[in-house]
Computed example of a mutant assay.
Amino acid sequence: MISFTANEAKTQFGEMIAKAQREPVSITKNGKPSVVVMSVADYNAIEELKLQNLREKLARSIAQFEAGKVFDGEEVFDEIMKDL
């Protein structure tokens, strides 16, 4: 991934945008990654993958519910907390 400092991104905005059309660009501030700039197409693809993942999880949850695999939330969290 290409990286620009915040100052470079400001002074070379056009170049940064052009590069972001080809691949995500990391912007650092004070030497640490701060944000990523990417094309709208890449952003939309990521959002679609997130939505597909959510739909798959919902479908699995519905199937488990219909199969009678239902758990009480408090019991589940109590079991998890025992290990902490």
Rank of each mutant, 00 (worst) to 15 (best):
M81W: 08
F13N: 02
F13P: 00
V76E: 00
E74T: 10
L84W: 10
V37K: 07
I2H: 10
V25Y: 06
F65T: 12
I62P: 04
V35W: 11
G73F: 12
E66L: 05
A41Y: 09
S26A: 10
I62V: 14
E8F: 02
E74G: 05
V36K: 07
D83W: 13
M81P: 06
V37G: 02
S3M: 15
V36L: 02
N53S: 14
Q64K: 15
S61Y: 14
I62D: 06
L58A: 09
V25P: 03
M81N: 05
N44K: 09
A59G: 00
K29S: 03
R60K: 14
S61P: 02
I2V: 11
I62C: 01
L58P: 03
D78G: 03
G14V: 13
I17Q: 04
R55T: 07
E8Y: 08
G68V: 13
E75D: 12
P24N: 07
E48W: 09
D78M: 06
M81V: 00
S34R: 01
D78K: 14
A18H: 11
S61Q: 09
A67C: 00
M16G: 02
G31I: 12
L49E: 07
G68W: 08
V35Q: 09
D78H: 03
A9S: 03
V25Q: 04
E66M: 08
N44C: 04
F4L: 10
R22G: 10
R60C: 05
N53A: 12
P24Y: 06
Y43H: 08
L58R: 04
G68Y: 11
Q21Y: 11
N30V: 04
V37E: 02
N30I: 09
Q12L: 13
K10S: 09
K69W: 04
T11Q: 15
E79L: 15
T5C: 04
K10G: 03
S34C: 07
V76W: 08
L58Q: 15
L84F: 15
I62M: 01
G73S: 08
A67I: 08
V76Q: 08
F71Q: 10
G31M: 11
S61H: 09
M38C: 02
V40F: 03
T11H: 13
F13V: 08
E15F: 07
A20L: 06
D42E: 15
F77S: 05
R60L: 13
E56I: 11
N53I: 08
V76M: 06
D83A: 14
Q21V: 02
A59L: 11
V36Q: 13
A41E: 14
T28E: 13
K50E: 10
F71Y: 07
T28N: 06
E66R: 10
M38F: 09
E47W: 09
A9I: 03
K57H: 10
G31W: 05
V36W: 12
